[in-house]
Write a protein that binds this DNA or RNA. Structure first.
Lengths: 143, 143
DNA sequence: TTCTTATTGCAAATGATTTGCAAAAACAAA
DNA sequence: TTTGTTTTTGCAAATCATTTGCAATAAGAA
């Protein structure tokens, strides 16, 4: 799997964009992180590598990566107003959110999701383009 | 199925709350509405019945109904910052959102959702308390 | 009708995210 | 390396949905 940094560089080259220290720090944070961070979380971590990044730069960079299709966003019932950024682009995964520790766990569920889409399409004649499946509960560690 | 208005009155009686004209107008809007309105939408409709309602009263009433368990909230990828209020309390339904006309369609899917929960629980040893399934696409009318 | 206390209107606060703009930094070209 | 062009940044102010404090209003019991 190619890294975010690499893919981002390709986008920049294609459009005459520039690789700044700020972007480098943000990309490396996203590359090493396993979860679904909020902008604030990315901000805190990116600051360790490049203390002068401004929060608005985090937002701009995250939004840019999203526009380039290198990142998707989720919002969970826990806090619907706060966006979470998901570097895992494969469409065939679902999420589990622990309501205690707020941890997000991904699980690939490609077959199931595809089946749900097909069933619903044939039953309703609607055209389904995307499925979002999220489970809420308590993770093993918190039990 | 008992109406929202009726259930709300019961809640009021139990706790010495009061049935105001504002609440009546909001409840009747929710009772007749079929979709998943935002606070703004409830506001616009409630104003027709009781022109002096203030938006903050809408929010307070919606939140109150939610706390009483008579309403649940959803947020959809279309606009993650805006909450939508769902008078359908049965846990066993999923949503389809048309990305063109923003219409929300509910479909009962109890068996499927229960099965997903059980499968995931036995596979991961996590405790699943809630499942949220949302499909996005184009509805029949918009095709 | 009166009294108590829940509820409202309003304006101001909040919190996440976005935007305008002048200053700073990339990178291409010289 | 210096210059020039253009992208990107920092910062402060704007936005937008939602919440809150408080004095004024109105339910509903007595």
């Amino acid at each position: 799997m190619t890294s975010l940094i690499y893919m981002a560089k390709e986008c920049l080259q294609a459009k005459g964009g520039r690789m700044t220290n700020q972007r480098k720090s943000i990309l490396s944070v996203l590359d090493t992180l396993s979860g679904h961070p909020t902008a604030e979380e990315v901000y805190r971590l990116a600051k360790k590598k490049y203390p002068d990044v401004h929060l608005s730069t985090i937002y701009r960079t995250l939004r840019w990566l999203q526009d380039e299709g290198l990142l998707s966003t989720q919002s969970f019932a826990e806090d619907t107003r706060k966006e979470r950024f998901d570097p895992n682009l494969s469409a065939d995964h679902a999420h589990f959110l622990c309501t205690k520790c707020k941890k997000v766990v991904e699980f690939s569920e490609g077959d199931l999701l595809a089946e749900i889409m097909q069933q619903f399409e044939s039953r309703t004649k609607f055209k389904v383009e995307q499925v979002s499946l999220t489970l809420y509960g308590i993770c093993k560690d918190c039990k």
